[in-house]
């Protein structure tokens, strides 16, 4: 099984306003795949479709090599889910919530659940409804991990939580993944958090997947070049996304697909390349969205 999640040609529509016209998304098995996108881009909807909580209009979704939502009941036994909004029974205590979950998952690891309970400093007798936001988040993480799933799907798990809680949750996640085999599909606003952990990145905007590639290629893909003396029109070996003047002397070019050998191109047009500025993931993400939104849609995307 090469891909833990394999989505092809997914079409989903909810009411008149929101639509995912055609989504192709693939999460390689064993990867930590970061799912980025602004609010309303369709990340949560995609996650719900992956888990079989929503039905698509058309297209194929395969999770752990099984079709969804048809085989949801079997697949979900091997998938750990940390939702955006924790929604357990508020009248159950932490211990009772653990017992409830454990009853449904044959792979439940009781010993490790106890370890996580201690590591997360959760009071087992506290009612779920009375937990703080951070404690709820940690409990959801505990419940998803103790199941020992093959695939972890996390929908903005650390959103709105303080740095200490975020650190604890992600450390536990990495700890689990280190044992090998598990795939992680995590959506988040916190770009820098994803930057450390993820080896794949997928960017979604307005119901479309903008790009999907290994983290290294994404980070190295978009750069800013400080250029002087370049003519107005150029045929560059890289993809020139934008040009901006910095005062009289130089311009800043936003480019994609830059390779270091390409500096020879500047000599050939009589310009001089002064600097190559790397963009961190957040800047790259912002720039990518900006260019994605200003470019006209490709013909096959128009319905």
């Amino acid at each position: 099984m090469t891909h833990a999640i394999d989505i092809r040609g997914l079409h989903y529509r909810a009411g008149r306003s929101f639509e995912i016209p055609s989504l192709d998304l693939r999460v390689p098995t064993g990867a930590i795949y970061g799912f980025l996108g602004p609010n309303g881009s369709g990340k949560t909807t995609t996650i719900r479709l992956v888990l079989g909580l929503l039905r698509p209009r058309a297209g194929d979704i395969r999770v752990l090599d099984r079709p969804m939502p048809r085989q949801a009941a079997d697949v979900l036994a091997r998938v750990g889910y940390v939702p955006e909004q924790p929604h357990l029974d508020p009248t159950l205590t932490v211990r009772e919530a653990m017992r409830f979950q454990a009853a449904f998952y044959p792979t439940w690891d009781h010993a490790w659940a106890e370890e996580l309970l201690v590591a997360f400093e959760l009071d087992e007798r506290r009612l779920f409804g009375k937990l703080s936001k951070g404690q709820k988040g940690k409990l959801m993480m505990l419940l998803a991990l103790a199941q020992r799933p093959e695939l972890l799907v996390l929908d903005e798990p650390t959103d709105g939580l303080d740095p200490v809680v975020r650190r604890d949750m992600l450390a536990a996640l990495i700890d689990y993944v280190s044992e090998g085999g598990a795939t992680v599909f995590i959506s988040s606003h916190l770009v820098h958090e994803l930057e450390r952990m993820c080896d794949w990145i997928g960017v979604m905007d307005q119901g479309r997947l903008v790009t999907e590639l290994p983290m290294e290629r994404f980070k190295n893909g978009i750069k800013r070049l400080v250029v002087s003396g370049a003519p107005p029109a150029v045929a560059a070996p890289f993809s020139l996304l934008s040009r901006e003047r910095n005062g009289a002397a130089t311009e800043t070019w936003l480019v994609r697909g830059w390779e270091p050998e390409m500096h020879a191109f500047f000599d050939s047009v009589g310009a001089s390349l002064q600097r190559v500025i790397d963009l961190d993931l957040e800047d790259g993400f912002v720039e990518l969205l900006r260019t994605f939104r200003t470019l006209p849609p490709r013909p096959e995307e128009v319905r």
Binding site: L51, G52, L53, A73, D74, V75, L76, A77, Y81, P83, Q85, H87, L88, D89, P90, F104, Y105
Partner: peptide, 11 residues
């Protein structure tokens, strides 16, 4: 209260 999300995510 949880809009059935929890129940629907059970295997």
């Amino acid at each position: 209260r949880g809009r059935h999300v929890h129940a629907l995510s059970l295997p």
